[in-house]
Each structure stands twice: as structure tokens, then as C-alpha cells.
């Protein structure tokens, strides 16, 4: 006999009741022993077990029997040979082994997805993106920058010619060949010494960066670094990565409560800067290889990076490397020095 409550068919009315099983039938009776309802096992349906929620047995005619006596319901279920929906889930949710396994599986798979899944999908998507889209995207970016952050270069013709010659020399060693890249010279008062690549093969170099470089090899190093970004379509990959992370977080948490909103912004930023650091490292390695192929020292790029950091960090203060889009300069320089020794 299991104590519980009987709810009349399609009504809100209920009475205290007891349930028992006899010869394949469920019998529900009032506390005075009078029969309230009975039903054969095949028309019974048990609600999925969840937390400490009362078990609910639907009798099939709109009425149900509800009880907090989980153990009693379980023996009743065995006797009547009823299905136990969600029974396995319920057991896992309450066992320490199950929970530990779930924590580990979630951590391992999330890490795998973030570390390998997203970069892999982004790379495949970037490879499949038609060049016309990359061209349109780059053109729009330049349009926006030219109006605001960037102005035409003020370099002397002599310096322009030198930069163009270096650009041709480096691009001849690159997979796309001399015609695959476009040099754009700009002056950016707010941007300072900087260089960046766009997906269509444009490489923007600011006057300040040109002025900061002390020799040809330093400039070659920067150009090779930016061309590597072009070769691997890092710009496109970044777009796909940045689009996947918020959608994945929304899918995982599935709710937009205040807690999850605030708590998911920071991890998103951290993950994206980690991707960006990987791209920078790849570009550094490629640049080192190209410099060596041209008979130059990869460490020269490191010299320029050190000077760049000095200039930039004096102005705005540098973010710690785990938050930044670029690896720590000291580590980059050390890596480039090792490349030189090879």
C-alpha cells in the first residue's frame, strides 16, 4: 500500500488515497478502503523521475495518482512491469560517479570543441569562401577605415619606392607570387606604427611603422608576417570563429538570464583572443621561414617587435598576454631568435 493523493479525471479535485497492485491491475482506494479507481497495467503511464518531484501515475482516463513515496512507487512499477521513463538519467543525476563523469565529459568535450572543433570548422569555411566575398569584405573595410582612422601616406617618393621594392621581393617568395598581394601605404594618427592584412591580399603599412624599422630585413619580416595572414585566410577564419562562439554559448546555456549573459561575455573574449594568438604565432613562424629563404635573419622581426611594444605600451598601456590578441612579445622574440639559430 502506497500513500498518496488521487486526482479525479479532468478535474482539480483530489483526495488522500492508497494505491496497490493486484493481478496486473492498479487499485486506488480511499483511506476508508472504498474503491476510487482501477486500471490495467497497459493503460498506466509513469512520469519521468526528476529530483524530488512526486511520482505521478496516470491511469489513462484523465485521473492520476501522485505520491512522494518514490521507493513504494518503484516496487509498484516492478510489480506491474511498467516502463521507467528517464530512470537511467535520474540515477546518473544523483550518483557521484555519474556527476563526476558528466563534469569531465563536459570539460573535455568543450575543450575539444573550442580548441580543435571551432578552428577546424572556421578553417574549412574560410577555404570554401569564394574570393569575391573576400574582395568585397576587404573593400568595405578599407572604405570605412579610409574615411576615419587612416589617411593617404605622406612618405617621400624615395621611401615609397624602397617599400614597394621590398614588398615585391618578399611576395616573390610567397605562395601567391608577386601578383597575389597589394601594398597599401597609409598614415594613421590614431593607429600609430602598425601593419595589417585583409583577406583579399591587401597589406596595409603605416608611415609610422616604416619609420620605426631600422633596416630592410625588419620591414621584410613584417611584410612576410602579414602575407602569412593572407595565405591562411586568418581574417576570414576570425570572422567564422567569432560567429560560432556566441551561437554555441547560446545553444549550450539555452537561456538569456542575467547571470548567463554576464558570465558568458568574458569566456567568449578569452577564447577569441586565444585563437588570435595562435594566428600570430603561425604568421611569425611563416615569416621566419621566408626570411631564412631570403637569406635574412628571423631575429630581425623580433627586434622590430620589441621596439613596437616600447612605442605602444608607453602610449596606452599593454594588456596582459592572456587577454591580448598577440602573444607576449618577449616570447615571440625568443621564438624568432631560435628560428635564426636553425
Amino acid at each position: 500500500m502506497i500513500e498518496g493523493r488521487y486526482f479525479y479525471p479532468h478535474a482539480t479535485r483530489f483526495v488522500a488515497a492508497r494505491a496497490s497492485a493486484a493481478s496486473g491491475m492498479l487499485r486506488v482506494e480511499a483511506l476508508d478502503g472504498s474503491l476510487l479507481n482501477e486500471a490495467p497495467a497497459k493503460s498506466l503511464r509513469l512520469s519521468p523521475a526528476l529530483g524530488r518531484l512526486p511520482a505521478r501515475l496516470s491511469l489513462g482516463d484523465g485521473s492520476h495518482f501522485e505520491s512522494d513515496d518514490r521507493a513504494g512507487i518503484e516496487s509498484l512499477r516492478r510489480e506491474l512491469k511498467l516502463r521507467a521513463p528517464g530512470g537511467l538519467l535520474h540515477r546518473i543525476e544523483r550518483s557521484w560517479r555519474g556527476i563526476t563523469l558528466a563534469v569531465l565529459a563536459t570539460a573535455a568535450l568543450s575543450y575539444g570543441f573550442v580548441a580543435f572543433g571551432v578552428p577546424f570548422i572556421a578553417r574549412k569555411l574560410a577555404e570554401a569562401t569564394p574570393p569575391s566575398i573576400a574582395v568585397a569584405m576587404s573593400r568595405q573595410t578599407m572604405q570605412i577605415l579610409d574615411g576615419r582612422a587612416l589617411a593617404p601616406s605622406a612618405l617621400k617618393p624615395k621611401d615609397r619606392a624602397r617599400l614597394e621594392a621590398l614588398f615585391r621581393k618578399v611576395s616573390a617568395h610567397e605562395p601567391r607570387g608577386a601578383g597575389g598581394y597589394t601594398l597599401l601605404m597609409r598614415r594613421g594618427p590614431g593607429v600609430g606604427a602598425n601593419a595589417f592584412a585583409l583577406p583579399d591580399g591587401s597589406v596595409v603599412v603605416t608611415d609610422a611603422l616604416y619609420a620605426l624599422a631600422k633596416n630592410d630585413e625588419e620591414i621584410e619580416g613584417v611584410l612576410a608576417h602579414e602575407m602569412s595572414h593572407v595565405n591562411h585566410a586568418h581574417g576570414l577564419q576570425r570572422v567564422y570563429q567569432a560567429s560560432m562562439i556566441p551561437a554555441a554559448i547560446a545553444l549550450l546555456t539555452g537561456d538569456v538570464s542575467q547571470v548567463s549573459q554576464m558570465a558568458t561575455v568574458l569566456p567568449g573574449i578569452l577564447v577569441q583572443s586565444a585563437y588570435s594568438r595562435n594566428f600570430e604565432q603561425q604568421a611569425d613562424d611563416d615569416a621566419a621561414a621566408i626570411l631564412r629563404a631570403m637569406g635574412a635573419k628571423p631575429s630581425r622581426l623580433g627586434d622590430l617587435l620589441l621596439r613596437l611594444e616600447e612605442v605602444h605600451c608607453h602610449k596606452g598601456g599593454c594588456a596582459p598576454s592572456w587577454l591580448g590578441s598577440h602573444p607576449e612579445t618577449a616570447a615571440r622574440v625568443e621564438r624568432l631568435r631560435q628560428e635564426t639559430g636553425k
Binding site: G51, L89, E93, G98, T106, F113
Partner: peptide, 11 residues
């Protein structure tokens, strides 16, 4: 327990 098992199965 419910949440972490949900999360693991979702992933």
C-alpha cells in the same frame, strides 16, 4: 546533478 548531466549530453 540535473544541470551537469544535461550539459554533458548536450555537448
Amino acid at each position: 546533478g540535473i544541470w551537469i548531466v544535461n550539459l554533458a549530453l548536450t555537448v
